[in-house]
Amino acid sequence: MNLWADGTYGVQTPLTDEAVREAEALLGVRLPETLLELLRTQNGGTVVDELAAFPTTERTSWASDHVPFDSVMGIGTAEGSLSLLDTPYLVQEWGLPSPVVLLTGDGHTWIALDYRAGGEPSVVWLDADNESELPLAPDLRTFLDGLVPAESFE
């Protein structure tokens, strides 16, 4: 799966095993191998248009039938871009549930790995403004396999 679009926006320095260990210690979770495989290919950035949306069966504040997935935060400290390492601050700032790891979002809405049930995290849509959430997939691999082009929707 080629998830990454061309460009450097949001891309962190290449991922190292040490950076993964430090991130997992900071976040207090074990990151899914599926995510680490993606971030080892490219450490965050913009998602290709062909995979920039996830269909939903319920309406969200974004749309009646999908949520956007246009980027993924990497692991790092590049100036001017968010990182998975910003999750603790962002969770507190936006009043989000915990433990989660934010994958992408704009402050008002997020797609996150949800660790609240324990074990392998599910993927959830979080809406800070509406204080609502919508389960999207039982795990990251299922979520990624369900991505479709954003232009599939009106």
Rank of each mutant, 00 (worst) to 15 (best):
M1I: 10
L3I: 14
L3N: 13
W4R: 04
A5F: 03
T8K: 08
Y9V: 11
G10F: 13
G10D: 11
Q12N: 08
Q12S: 07
T13G: 14
L15G: 08
T16Q: 07
D17A: 15
E18F: 07
A19V: 14
V20N: 10
E22D: 15
A23M: 12
A23E: 09
E24D: 14
E24R: 13
E24S: 15
A25R: 15
L27K: 14
L27D: 13
L27C: 15
G28C: 15
G28S: 15
V29F: 04
V29L: 07
R30P: 00
L31R: 04
P32A: 01
L35A: 13
L35C: 13
L36P: 07
L36W: 01
E37C: 09
L38G: 01
L39Q: 09
T41I: 09
Q42T: 04
N43E: 09
G44Q: 05
G44C: 08
G45P: 06
D49T: 02
D49V: 01
D49E: 07
D49L: 00
L51N: 04
L51T: 00
A52Y: 01
F54S: 02
T57Y: 00
E58W: 03
R59S: 03
S61H: 03
S61I: 00
A63N: 05
D65L: 03
H66R: 15
P68L: 01
F69N: 02
S71E: 04
M73E: 14
G74Y: 05
G74L: 10
I75C: 05
I75Q: 03
G76S: 10
G76P: 02
T77P: 01
E79P: 01
S81I: 12
S83H: 07
S83P: 07
L84G: 06
L85Q: 10
T87S: 15
P88D: 04
P88M: 11
Y89T: 07
L90E: 12
V91W: 01
Q92P: 00
G95F: 03
P99K: 08
P99R: 07
L103E: 10
L103T: 12
D106Y: 06
G107H: 04
G107D: 06
W110D: 01
D114Q: 12
Y115N: 11
Y115D: 03
R116E: 09
A117T: 14
A117H: 13
G118R: 00
G118E: 00
G119I: 00
E120D: 13
E120L: 05
S122T: 10
V123Y: 13
V123P: 14
V123W: 12
V124N: 00
V124W: 05
L126K: 06
L126H: 04
D127T: 04
D127W: 03
D129W: 13
D129N: 09
N130G: 05
E131Q: 10
E133F: 15
P135H: 06
T142P: 04
L144F: 08
D145W: 08
G146T: 11
A150M: 07
A150Y: 06
E151V: 08
F153P: 05
F153W: 09
E154T: 12
E154K: 10
E154S: 12
